[in-house]
Design a protein around this nucleic acid. Sequence first.
DNA 1: CTGAAAGCGCTTACAG
DNA 2: CTGAAAGCGCTTACAG
Lengths: 343, 343
Amino acid sequence: MAKSTDSLDRGPRAALNIQAVAAAAGVSKTTVSHVISGNRPVSESTRRKVERVMDDLGFRPNFFAQALNSKKSNTIALIAQDITNPFYPALARGLQTSVASADHVVMLFDAGAGHSLTRSFVDDVIQRRIDGVVVAVSNVEEELVELQQAGIAVVAIGSGLSGLPIDWVSADDERIGIDATRYLYRAGHRRIATISGPPEAEPGTGRLAGYIKTMTEVGFGVDPRLCAVADWTREGGAIAFRKLLDQAEPPTAVFCANDLMAIGVLDAAAEAGLRVPGDLAVIGVDDIDAASLVRPGLTTIRVPALEIGQAAGDLLLHRIAEVDESARRHITVQHTLITRESA
Amino acid sequence: MAKSTDSLDRGPRAALNIQAVAAAAGVSKTTVSHVISGNRPVSESTRRKVERVMDDLGFRPNFFAQALNSKKSNTIALIAQDITNPFYPALARGLQTSVASADHVVMLFDAGAGHSLTRSFVDDVIQRRIDGVVVAVSNVEEELVELQQAGIAVVAIGSGLSGLPIDWVSADDERIGIDATRYLYRAGHRRIATISGPPEAEPGTGRLAGYIKTMTEVGFGVDPRLCAVADWTREGGAIAFRKLLDQAEPPTAVFCANDLMAIGVLDAAAEAGLRVPGDLAVIGVDDIDAASLVRPGLTTIRVPALEIGQAAGDLLLHRIAEVDESARRHITVQHTLITRESA
DNA sequence: CTGAAAGCGCTTACAG
DNA sequence: CTGAAAGCGCTTACAG
């Protein structure tokens, strides 16, 4: 009788693993492992032989087994408020660019997809031992704390989440407000209005602060009749502007805290028969695609979403690599004035 | 002497794993595993005890260990041509919506981030045993084949990659061309031009085919002087339209294969002193945000990116779950005419 | 309904 | 410069 438990029938096709490579190369699993990881010196000839075999066999180390040992997933998660808002895809690209250099991959979670999936996504992130998370969504302080307690590196986008010791990246919102307001002032405007975002959070508050600071500095002071608030949308901007118009001395210029509201102002201005920039100057913030598509083209302040993503990735990689917990870090990205026709 | 290798010093804090849960609950690892997976019945009282302990300890099963055994990563990858093009974020959202229902997570790869990272991303996908991939990028036939050979489910977006036996999702491009052209015809236009995309690939060819079919059907035939080609960009659309204008009998209507080119036509028309829709009717495809922002508002055919993403996710989940390899599947999503001012 | 034990494919002290 | 072996934290036949 032939020995039936021989090399012939070890199941459905021998698995292609480190053991198979070791056998084919005539070395130990240990050595193959070190050729892959580079964690200890291997003689030139051995290395070449092993690499040759891996190539011939088309071997790729099993990621799960590697991660199970190393406790590193080489994965970064992005939790985005609303991926269909052009700011976030640009941020995602910047993030990918940054972390790809360290061989990390990006997992996307779009909170705008509805449901309260955010909760379960945080669980996923923890369970999958994601190395770091970029949190670009509001009102998730609780989840942030949980992520940190699970030992995951976290960086917040846009606002500092007061009190929490987490890294964050943002534009210099007050400076944006100052630059926009000064630009209108220097163009000769004296009744300058602002339409800011809802007062509860950055970046709305910072931009408004910059407006107030500038109006005070140049000696105009702040006239409450020139300060409107809207909800970041085009329609909201139009509504707010109609109210601003409805007074004895209407403004000749408006600083809007984002482009969408500024476009709403353009709508309402056209409706009211005002010519832009002749009768009314308008400036926004963001430089979304539409800013260059509307007529007249919208003058705006560009917030570099791509750079924000990159900075977030850099902070994360740094935090992941470092041994001692160092202090909280904050990166501020630079904005740029984009001059078009509206102001 | 006290027994020094006692329960006191088993290293830096005992690991929180299935073994620890088993011990605390007074059952075996096997049982804990089955409580988690539901792979075999567990008595009601035991299940409750184990769940209680997991909750108290804050235990979450280690994803890598699970995946190492099950060979499932519960992860879907999206390879997007250009995540800053609004079509892709919407697709990503639809994909997430679909796969989240099966507890899968989305990994994003933006091919537009530059470099030829696509190559290394494909390697990552294989190595990480990603369950399925949505390929929304062109010229990667080689990589597609490789992914399939690695046993990964693949679905292509937009075009069928002739010959390859892979599932795909697309709009009905010929029908889009027909609907757009007929709309212009019914509005009374007789000299209808088209600006199509580069001829080498869908969706350009399909939309052009629809235009040709309709022009033939209504008896006009195809006049080469009315057929222009551009590169999908705004500037390209403007350039192409200037050429169309430069003839004895210029068109009174233009069907553009995407919105960006249609907006370029609006630019060039304004420049040439043509009023839209009075002197010229323009229709695009996609319904990007900008379509509603330009003046006059762009009439267009909406391609439901979100639904495409969902359909892709559904195909993938189906393909992953199924045992026997069934035939290639193709899903066509429905488009809608969005009437604004330009036509 | 439940357990003991082998195994998934790696990494990493320990030893030479 | 290289190996044997224990271990990472699960799942799953096999057995009762």
